[in-house]
Simulated scan of single mutants.
Amino acid sequence: MYGVQYSREKIVTEDQDFLDLDWSYAKNMKVAETLVILSHGLEGSSSGQYILGMVKLLNRNGYDCLAWNFRGCGGEMNKTARFYHSGATEDLDAIVRHALAKGYTRIHMMGFSLGGNLTLKYLGESGSNLDIKIESAVVFSVPMDLLACSRAMILPKNIIYMQRFLQTLKPKVTKKSKLFPEAFNRSHNRYVRTLYDFDDVYTAPLHGFENADHYYEACSSRNFVGGISIPTLIVNALNDPIVPFESLPVEAIRNHAKVWLEAVSEGGHCGFRPAVLRDGVYWSEHRALTFLKNGMRDDL
Rank of each mutant, 00 (worst) to 15 (best):
Q163S: 02
Q163I: 06
Q163N: 14
Q163V: 01
Q163A: 02
Q163T: 03
R164L: 04
R164E: 07
R164G: 09
R164M: 05
F165N: 00
F165E: 03
F165R: 06
L166D: 04
Q167P: 00
Q167M: 03
Q167V: 01
Q167T: 03
T168R: 11
T168D: 09
T168S: 13
T168H: 07
T168G: 07
L169H: 08
K170R: 10
K170F: 01
K170D: 00
K170L: 13
K170C: 09
P171F: 11
P171W: 02
P171E: 06
P171N: 04
P171I: 01
P171Y: 02
P171C: 10
K172S: 00
K172W: 01
K172N: 06
K172H: 02
V173Y: 08
V173H: 00
V173A: 08
V173T: 07
V173R: 03
V173Q: 08
T174Y: 03
T174F: 08
T174R: 03
T174L: 12
K175L: 10
K175M: 09
K175E: 11
K176D: 01
K176R: 12
K176W: 06
K176M: 08
K176Y: 04
S177K: 05
K178C: 00
K178G: 01
L179R: 14
L179G: 06
L179I: 15
L179N: 10
P181W: 13
P181L: 09
E182W: 09
E182I: 05
E182T: 13
A183R: 13
A183E: 15
A183V: 05
A183T: 02
A183D: 14
F184I: 01
F184T: 04
F184E: 09
F184G: 05
F184R: 01
F184Q: 06
F184H: 03
N185R: 10
N185C: 11
N185L: 10
N185D: 15
R186S: 14
R186C: 13
R186V: 11
R186Y: 05
S187G: 09
S187I: 06
S187V: 07
S187L: 10
H188C: 04
H188D: 12
H188R: 10
H188Q: 11
H188N: 11
N189C: 08
N189D: 12
N189V: 08
N189L: 15
N189K: 07
N189G: 13
N189W: 10
R190L: 04
R190A: 12
R190E: 14
Y191L: 15
Y191S: 12
V192S: 04
V192T: 05
V192D: 02
V192E: 07
V192P: 07
R193H: 13
R193K: 15
R193G: 15
T194M: 09
T194W: 08
T194I: 11
T194C: 14
T194V: 10
L195V: 11
L195N: 06
Y196W: 15
Y196H: 14
D197W: 01
D197I: 00
D197E: 02
D197V: 00
D197Q: 01
F198D: 07
F198V: 01
F198H: 09
F198W: 06
F198E: 07
